[in-house]
Write a protein that binds this DNA or RNA. Structure first.
Length: 266
DNA sequence: ATTTTCCCCTGCCGGC
DNA sequence: TGCCGGCAGGGGAAAA
C-alpha cells in the first residue's frame, strides 16, 4: 500500500522515537522521497526509497502503524509520528509504551551483512533454516532453550508467544539447556517453529492485548494459542492444568506433563 | 564470548 | 470495593 507514494510531510511528536538521533534530521531525510519497497529483516521494518537513506523501524512491544488512504479520520491514542504522502494518504505511528524506535541508515550499510550479524540471525521460514542449522546454532549453549529461541541473533523473529507455542508443540521444557536438546528434539522444535509461525501468519497474528495490523484489523491467532497466557486451563493434549513459570525474565507457559522438566523425562 | 540483570514506558489486572 | 505490586508479543547497555 505504500510503494509509489511520495512523502510530503513528516511529523514526529515524540522525540524518543528517533533516539539517539534528532527527529528533525530524520524528518529532513524523508521528505520528498518516494517509497519504493517495504521489507523486513527479523523484527525490523525497512522502508526503501527512490534515493537516499533507508528508514528502519522497530515496533518493540506496543508500536503500531496505521495506514489510511485519505486524510486521517480522528487522532488515535498514543500517536507519536505521522508520514503524510502527497496523494493524501498517511501512515501514523502509535506506541503506548514508547519503546519503538525509527532511524535511517545508508543503503550500503543495510544491505551489508555486517550490520545484521549479532543482531538478527537466520529467518525461520527460509529454506536455509533446516533442523541441522537449528542444531548447529543451539550447540554448546548452556542457556535455557527458551532464552535461545528469544535470542534474535540465533533465529530471527521468535518472540515470547511463539517460543512458548513452539516448545509446547515440540514437547520440550523451556528450561532445558539449549545445547542438550537431543537430535529428535531439535527436529521436532524446528518443525514446530515453522508450523506455529506459519499458522500465526495465516491467522493474522495474535491480538491478545491491543495488537492490530496496519489496516486496524485484529488477528485470530490468540484463539489458536495452546499454552501461552492459558495458566490453569487444561492442556489441549493431555488435559492437566497449564502452568506459568518464569524463564529468561519472561512469563512462560508450560504443560508440566507434556513438557517434562529437564532431568526427569517421562 | 556468552549469559544475566537492569532498564526504558504506560496501563491494566490479579490478589490482598 | 479499593489499592498497588507485578507484569506485559522487546532488546540495548552494562555487568557478571
Amino acid at each position: 500500500m505504500l510503494p509509489w507514494r511520495r512523502i510530503e510531510r513528516v511529523e514526529i511528536w515524540d522525540a524518543r522515537l528517533t533516539l539517539p538521533d534528532d527527529p528533525e534530521r530524520v524528518e529532513r531525510a524523508l521528505v520528498g522521497r518516494t517509497v519504493r519497497d517495504v521489507g523486513r529483516r527479523g523484527k525490523y521494518l525497512l522502508f526503501d526509497f527512490d534515493e537516499g537513506d533507508i528508514l528502519l523501524m522497530h515496533l518493540r512491544m506496543t508500536g503500531q502503524l496505521h495506514f489510511s488512504p485519505s486524510e486521517p479520520e480522528q487522532d488515535p491514542p498514543y500517536r507519536r509520528a505521522r508520514i503524510a504522502f502527497a496523494d493524501g494518504a498517511s501512515l501514523l505511528y502509535c506506541d503506548l509504551r514508547r519503546f519503538g524506535r525509527a532511524w535511517t541508515l545508508p543503503r550500503e550499510v543495510v544491505f551489508d551483512g555486517a550490520y545484521w550479524r549479532g543482531r538478527v540471525g537466520v529467518e525461520p521460514l527460509e529454506a536455509r533454516f533446516t533442523a541441522r542449522e537449528l542444531g548447529r546454532r543451539l550447540a554448546g549453549r548452556r542457556t535455557a532453550i527458551k532464552a535461545a529461541l528469544l535470542d534474535q541473533s540465533l533465529v530471527a523473529g521468535i518472540g515470547n508467544i511463539y517460543a512458548d507455542e513452539a516448545l509446547f508443540a515440540a514437547r520440550i521444557h523451556p528450561e532445558t539447556e539449549a545445547g542438550r536438546v537431543d537430535e529428535p528434539g531439535v527436529r521436532r522444535l524446528h518443525r514446530a517453529i515453522r508450523d506455529r509461525l506459519r499458522v500465526a501468519i495465516a491467522a493474522g497474528g495474535s491480538s491478545i492485548d491491543r495488537y492490530r495490523d496496519a489496516r486496524g484489523e485484529r488477528g485470530a491467532m490468540q484463539t489458536l494459542l495452546r499454552v501461552h497466557r492459558r495458566r490453569g486451563e487444561p492442556c489441549p493434549r493431555c488435559g492437566i492444568a497449564i502452568q506459568k513459570i518464569r524463564v529468561a525474565q519472561r512469563g512462560t507457559y508450560v504443560c508440566p506433563r507434556c513438557q517434562p522438566a529437564p532431568g526427569r523425562e517421562c
